[in-house]
Design a protein around this nucleic acid. Sequence first.
DNA 1: CTGTTAGCGCGTTCAC
DNA 2: GTGAACGCGCTAACAG
Lengths: 333, 333
Amino acid sequence: MSSIKYIAERTGVSITTVSKALNNYPDVSEETKRKIREVAEECGYTPNMAARNLALGKSNIIGLVLSEIRETDSNGNIIFRILIGAKNYCAEKDFELLIISTDIKKQRSKTLVQLCKERQISGVIMYGLKPGDPYFEEITKAELPCIAVDIKLKGRHLATVTTDNVAAVKEVIRQLHDKGHRNIALINGLKEVDVSQYRELGYRTAMQELGIEVKDAYIKYADYYEELACEKTKELLNANPEITAIFCASDLMALGAMRAVQGMGKRVPEEVALVGFDGIQLSDYSNPRLTTVVQDFKGMGRAAAEKLIKMLSGENVNEVDYVPYHFRIRESI
Amino acid sequence: MSSIKYIAERTGVSITTVSKALNNYPDVSEETKRKIREVAEECGYTPNMAARNLALGKSNIIGLVLSEIRETDSNGNIIFRILIGAKNYCAEKDFELLIISTDIKKQRSKTLVQLCKERQISGVIMYGLKPGDPYFEEITKAELPCIAVDIKLKGRHLATVTTDNVAAVKEVIRQLHDKGHRNIALINGLKEVDVSQYRELGYRTAMQELGIEVKDAYIKYADYYEELACEKTKELLNANPEITAIFCASDLMALGAMRAVQGMGKRVPEEVALVGFDGIQLSDYSNPRLTTVVQDFKGMGRAAAEKLIKMLSGENVNEVDYVPYHFRIRESI
DNA sequence: CTGTTAGCGCGTTCAC
DNA sequence: GTGAACGCGCTAACAG
């Protein structure tokens, strides 16, 4: 009801002038600007985004594309932090953040690009999608600006925000080496996931640099499942009792490993040292508390939003940006 | 670019007819409908929501109003589940869910109603706001349709979705009584919060019904903080060593209490039994695992969205709806 | 059954 | 400095 038209009438000027004044154009006298703003204030005027977006042909909306969310998962915690980071930055820049979850129903009927066009979404942040997911494949071919979190993408309209996984894992392995460990195993996540590959690379590189032979028998994949990590750890320790330290590519897997180790009657860290990755809340509550690489998920969300908004405004952005991590050493090593 | 206008030209009919066909109006011949849909498909046509909303003067957008979010908090987990529940329902009904967080900066400059008008938001779900928060006060006076989660509000455009806290706590106390406990203490959350009051009411009612005198010394407030709960528990047990069971109004406080009990060299549950509330992930990982009232946060989010959308479409809705909880009994009692 | 006209609220030429 | 006129994409009332 309280549109610029209404304000125009009430002020006795034209709609155009009101629009210009409210957008602080230089070609309106200070006097009329003052008057118009005053009246706008009085009326509790609020611009209508839909109309503005329509007129401008664009909008300040970006999307956060998530794969199907298992809300019970501790994964949710990570997603939430990314969400909050991105959301906060958007709020500062007067952007809107819309969650786009690959709902099964919608996936069949609408492509990501369609979804975005409908809602005037000019770019997206992507997290948790894997090669093979329809939206993932689409984004590499489409022209939709996209910042991926933890996935390396190449293309003019694509960029990445991530943790320097290789450096982080190298630091972990070096630390374990410093503590005297030589037989260090790796429980990795899903092989196909980008970050898993980088974490394994960090493991292999560090071992080589330290002059330790990498044994394939020391590497297991538990696909980021706690239960699976528990089983794999038992296999690992039964087959290779000389192992004194295990690096797990996620905290949840490390907790599974801890359960296995303790279940076998061995002590952490005296007999087997454990290190996780992520820095989720649970890592604070295990006994002993978990040594882990703390990722700054909120920072990654923020960085992703920042990067996307820059990209949308035509600025050049780096192909990859690393968000600082923090190696938190505690009682599990 | 591919608007209904374009489709109209390419099909040789008028814009109106295209609009009607695409919206499946009855007064367009099947033949032309078919033709138009075909062309629309070809062009990869996608309706422009902004334009539609503008023309319709309304929109299918609802907001999720949250108080300032401490992303480190396990509170985040709860919020996230509510969010997912609401989001999923919205997706089914072709509604959009927008997060509105009471950012400090925005709070001074814009009222909630303004924020909503700007974005064409027709109603909101509210969680985590307390009496005294500006947005909270505003909602009770404004006319914005609002479903509050865990807060009882009265008004034509207001309704509530919550857990039946009184019933749940009564069940807890009765269970403890069945196990032989008579000296049962309560560590409650922030006194001002609605749910705290209901949980205390449940406690008091159950005790009375069981013929046990309620001692004020047995009731402490730890404001939902883990650390504070730890301290209060120590005070409680030192002053009243006869206490054999403590019900905490949140899992996080129960974990604090557990730390206190175990830190005092007492065993859970043999010497002190503990029960929490919420059913957060951490409750699965404590040792012993926590007995708790599992709230269905996702269900509450979903119920809130459903209720709001019904309200918006003019249906009558109950003043309060209870979402079923589940009393999960484990080793801590 | 189909098309014409008008309008949603706002931004932007281009005259005055 | 100011305003009239037009268009963004779509829907609704009315006329044919």
